[in-house]
């Protein structure tokens, strides 16, 4: 208790002591206050909540009426109006899933089963069939599409990345060479080009008539891309586990796969949780690049809502709105990551 009090006192003191902290405080405080005040003024005091574009243009404030007008399109895109409850349910399901996994105690084998069931349910809700009106996947857009892309790419790329990292450490020259070649190739090109390849070139190699779903192609491209990054992160983790651990496990008679599964990977993956979360968050945001293969994810619907000729010129408001949505999901991922770090037995 005493220590706590001391800490509080010193934390207040830390704004001014030593002298250079006082300078930092003196410079940053007005900066924060001015920015905060301007934002407050623009958004809430002068912000236009009701009305049309002409009213917005007369005002100096934020045109929140525009965001209100376009929110439905930004969030759900071209999904049929009368079926809107379905993508809404999907978003609720994702948010519920986020809340569920934020308790690390629930990360067990059963979670994989739940995730598989949720996935089937999500695809049924979005795509229909089986008592629901079918909705072609070309109408899936906005936030549900972003979440589906991110969820699939994250959950598939991680195990693939682990396999690549193990391949890179393999004694088999062929396996090692292939893993290195794959990782270096993918890391050497921009994600956009991988997406293009998956969308434009892949169909050229496939037999005529066999048309792979565009959504699936995007998932494959994103997964391929992020797996290479995960592989390098995992490799760092493998290097952090001392060789003595492997030797002790060998001496006990464990096979290679048992050693990896029971001894090496649990320690290696735990050691690299921060960069893993980093890659994951990066991937979540990189889903916005699927617009180049004309999938309208959250960023895509936002961009096309800006082209409405009645409402030209309110891009700041729209981008802030989606930025807020991205931020909420990314900060949640980040929080889960730091909980995971602190959790003892992973």
């Amino acid at each position: 208790m005493k220590r706590n009090k001391l800490y509080k006192l010193s934390s207040l003191k830390s704004f001014f002591v030593p002298w250079y902290n006082a300078i930092i405080t003196a410079v940053l405080t007005p900066l924060i206050l001015i920015t905060g005040f301007k934002l407050f003024n623009w958004l809430l005091v002068k912000g236009i909540w009701q009305g049309d574009a002409s009213l917005c243009r007369q005002s100096e404030g934020a045109c929140l009426a525009f965001v209100k007008e376009k929110a439905r399109f930004i969030l759900f895109g071209t999904y049929p109006d009368e079926q809107l409850y379905r993508p809404i349910l999907v978003i609720i399901l994702f948010v519920a899933g986020f809340i569920y996994i934020s308790d690390i105690k629930r990360w067990n084998k059963r979670l994989l089963l739940y995730m598989a069931i949720a996935l089937v349910f999500i695809f049924w809700l979005m795509g229909g069939g089986f008592f629901l009106m079918p909705v072609d996947s070309s109408y899936w857009s906005g936030l549900p599409l972003t979440l589906i892309l991110a969820f699939l790419a994250i959950t598939i790329s991680y195990p693939v990345g682990i396999l690549l990292a193990l391949g890179r450490q393999s004694h088999s020259r062929l396996l090692k060479g292939m893993s290195v070649a794959y990782i270096e190739l993918i890391r050497g090109v921009p994600l956009i080009s991988v997406l293009f390849m998956a969308s434009v070139m892949l169909p050229l190699f496939l037999p005529e008539g066999l048309n792979i779903n565009k959504l699936l192609r995007a998932v494959v491209a994103l997964t391929m891309f992020v797996a290479a990054y995960h592989a390098e992160v995992v490799r760092g983790g493998l290097a952090a586990v001392s060789h003595g651990q492997d030797e002790a496990a060998m001496a006990l008679g464990l096979t290679y796969f048992q050693r990896m599964r029971l001894i090496i990977l649990p320690q290696a993956l735990k050691a690299v949780i921060p960069p893993t979360i980093n890659t994951t968050i990066g991937m979540f945001k990189d889903t916005s690049l699927v617009i180049v293969i004309s999938l309208f994810d959250l960023m895509g619907t936002t961009k096309s809502s800006l082209t409405d000729s009645k409402w030209l010129g309110f891009s700041i408001e729209a981008y802030l709105f989606v930025a807020l949505i991205y931020f909420i999901f990314c900060i949640s991922l980040s929080r889960i990551g730091s909980k995971l770090e602190k959790y003892k037995a992973t």
């Binding site: 001392s242 003595g244 651990q245 030797e247 002790a248 496990a249 001496a251 006990l252 008679g253 464990l254 048992q258 029971l262 001894i263 649990p266 320690q267 735990k270 037995a345 992973t346």
Partner: peptide
Amino acid sequence: VGMVFQQFNLFPHLTILQNLILAPLHV
């Protein structure tokens, strides 16, 4: 053949009991 190392090499992510039962369980 059992082996004991200079640096112990216990598995730090497992409890003492889990360290001991690992090989009997899996091997």
